[in-house]
């Protein structure tokens, strides 16, 4: 009897030991996978900073003439120089990127907020609401190049072509809005980032308790009064987060722009000091496309690593700053709600 118990205890012990060893190995493997993922991030950032920073730290050496002041590579990157195949440097590209994302933000913010409001405050649970939700969920994962194709076909050729026929017939056959340009690129990016704004805003709106809306309605406020005076003010941080995330995503997109208006070199900036201040029909330069162009048309490929990394670093920094802002905003928002017990 005690022998059976002994044997049983022994076999349990051995199973347990085997299980423990298996667990140790498997958990170690998943931990290693995590380390590898982190390592890949560190390596990428390391290369970017090392290669880009190294190039930036160097000054333009032999190429400048004797009587010219030696330009730092930072200046070369910004304003252009002999080492840059593209004249003008990265400055107009930065301006282009900023103007593009600004126009995009102006378009996408109201649209995204309105759709999110519809989904949370107006829509019922009917099939069309579900369809809209599925559509928006899917929009987020549609390849960005498809948005470019759509932008070209619909905005540029259909809408732009109509506009030209209606208002700029005098310029035809030279297209005004019937060709790729800033407006269409902004619109394309706006649609591309629309799901980001919608999802973030919706999340913020859903986080607000129903009681808040009921409280307002019970005081005799109409639905729109409730939205404007209670719901939207309370959801502002989420909306801001959504918009910042959208801008961060848009700033890194290049593929769709290649179809709707980005160029290697634009002779003038899309903004000016005189009216109309912003030239929506112009083609523009873009930081991401600048990186692409430098890489694609690099004559001696290795020599270009530095400058590509430097301009890439610039782009990553811009996007990282935006993402960080969104992250902090969300953290603050979460803390506020935790304190108030809404969550």
């Amino acid at each position: 009897m005690s022998g059976d118990l002994q044997r049983m205890r022994y076999s349990i012990e051995s199973v347990r030991a085997r299980e423990e060893k298996l667990g140790a190995v498997m958990s170690a493997m998943t931990a290693v996978a995590t380390l590898l993922a982190l390592l890949s991030v560190v390596m990428f950032l390391g290369f970017l900073i090392f290669l880009g920073g190294d190039w930036l730290a160097n000054a333009q050496s032999a190429t400048s003439g004797v009587d010219q002041p030696v330009k730092s590579n930072f200046e070369v990157l910004l304003w252009g120089g002999a080492e840059l195949a593209v004249s003008g440097g990265v400055f107009p590209a930065i301006v282009g990127t900023i103007v593009l994302t600004l126009v995009m933000t102006v378009i996408v913010s109201p649209l995204g907020i309105v759709v999110a409001l519809y989904l949370t405050e107006y829509a019922g649970t009917g099939w069309h609401t579900r369809l809209l939700r599925i559509g928006i969920q899917n929009m987020a994962a549609i390849p960005s190049i498809i948005y470019g194709v759509f932008g070209l076909a619909f905005f540029v050729y259909v809408i732009g072509g109509r506009l030209d026929n209606l208002f700029f017939a005098g310029n035809l056959p030279n297209p005004t809005f019937g060709a790729p340009g800033l407006l269409w690129a902004s619109l394309t990016l706006a649609i591309l980032t629309l799901p980001t704004v919608i999802v973030a805003t919706e999340e913020g709106l859903l986080r607000l308790p129903l009681a808040l809306r009921e409280g307002s309605r019970a005081l005799g406020a109409t639905r729109s009064e409730t939205i404007f005076r209670v719901v939207l003010p309370a959801a502002t941080p989420s909306i801001m987060t959504g918009i910042i995330l959208a801008v961060a995503r848009a700033a890194g997109e290049v593929a769709p722009l290649m179809l709707v208006g980005v160029v290697r070199y634009a002779p003038t900036l899309p903004v000016s000091v005189e009216a109309p201040f912003i030239h929506l029909e112009q083609k523009f330069m873009h930081l991401g496309f600048f990186v692409y162009d430098l890489t694609m048309h690099a004559p001696g490929s290795e020599g270009r690593v530095g400058i590509v990394a430097a301009s890439g670093l610039l782009l990553v920094l811009v996007i990282a700053t935006l993402n960080l802002a969104a992250l902090l905003l969300r953290l603050r928002l979460r803390r506020t709600f935790l304190r108030t017990g809404f969550e």
Partner: peptide, 20 residues
């Protein structure tokens, strides 16, 4: 309805002050 609700006030189970 909104006029009615101004005549008939309501207090809910959970206190629901507006975040203002």
């Amino acid at each position: 309805v909104t006029a009615l609700r101004r005549r008939v006030g309501m207090v809910f189970q959970q206190p629901n002050p507006f975040p203002m």
